[in-house]
């Protein structure tokens, strides 16, 4: 997997590179500011770009803007955004083009190397990886009168994991149930929310996210 990294803190940049190289990825560029990140993404067209939201020179959301600009130039370019904090507003902007292949995670998630690399692979494969904190904020909105409020606790759990971008198999492994049980839950969820059923994992996730973030 060919990867571009945009991260201004030296230790984190090197740490990410080392971690990913250890898992068999190739780092084609590791840059430290917004403009060179955009350039690197367009020049190398990586399988996935890891982007820190806040980058020089302005130290605002330079990284996010570079990621959005790159995706405007190269539709569907896989981008995994990392940040010290997550904002629904930014998640919405990343998901807005409906193309998928985006991730938005807290930097803390790097601690769990296996899960992190899994998220990187998922995004590179066109899937999504949303931070549980974003999903929790999305789910917190559902009052008792809304369809989300009518889900059973188990279904809510499955919905949360699905919205994070996990496949049925991954959800089954996480909840220690069979894949068939998960499939049953997901079809129940789709029925209760009034969403059209879909076999495509990525499409399904995007539909759920769009529903929650209406």
């Amino acid at each position: 997997m060919r990867i571009v990294i945009g991260e201004d803190l030296y230790l984190l940049r090197e740490g990410l590179a080392r971690l990913l190289e250890a898992h068999g990825c190739e780092i084609v560029a590791a840059v430290a500011d917004g403009p060179s990140l955009l350039e690197a993404m367009i020049e190398h067209r990586p399988d996935v770009a890891l982007v820190d939201v806040r980058l020089p020179p302005t130290f605002t959301d330079e990284g996010l803007k570079a990621a959005l600009a790159a995706r405007a130039r190269i539709p569907g370019l896989p981008v995994l955004v990392l940040s010290q904090y997550v904002e629904r507003l930014y998640a919405r902007e990343l998901l807005a083009d409906g193309a998928g292949a985006v991730g938005y995670l807290l930097k803390d998630r790097v601690f769990d190397a296996a899960q992190f690399v899994d998220a990187v692979r998922r995004v590179a494969g066109g899937g999504t990886a949303m931070d549980p904190e974003v999903i929790a904020k999305l789910l917190a909105r559902g009052g008792p009168s809304e369809p989300v409020g009518q889900l059973t606790p188990r279904e809510l759990e499955v919905l949360g994991l699905m919205a994070e971008g996990r496949s049925n198999a991954a959800i089954a492994a996480k909840l220690v149930v069979t894949e068939r049980a998960v499939a049953k839950h997901t079809s129940n969820i789709f029925a209760k929310l009034g969403l059209p059923p879909s076999d495509d994992d990525n499409r399904r996730v995007l539909a759920v996210l769009a529903y929650l973030d209406h």
């Binding site: 605002t60 629904r88 507003l89 919405r92 904020k137 909105r141 009052g143």
Partner: peptide, 16 residues
């Protein structure tokens, strides 16, 4: 990052 407008929009998204 974004100034008052987007910050308030972000607040609105987090409101119940």
């Amino acid at each position: 990052d974004r100034g008052l407008g987007d910050a308030v929009r972000a607040l609105a998204l987090n409101s119940p």
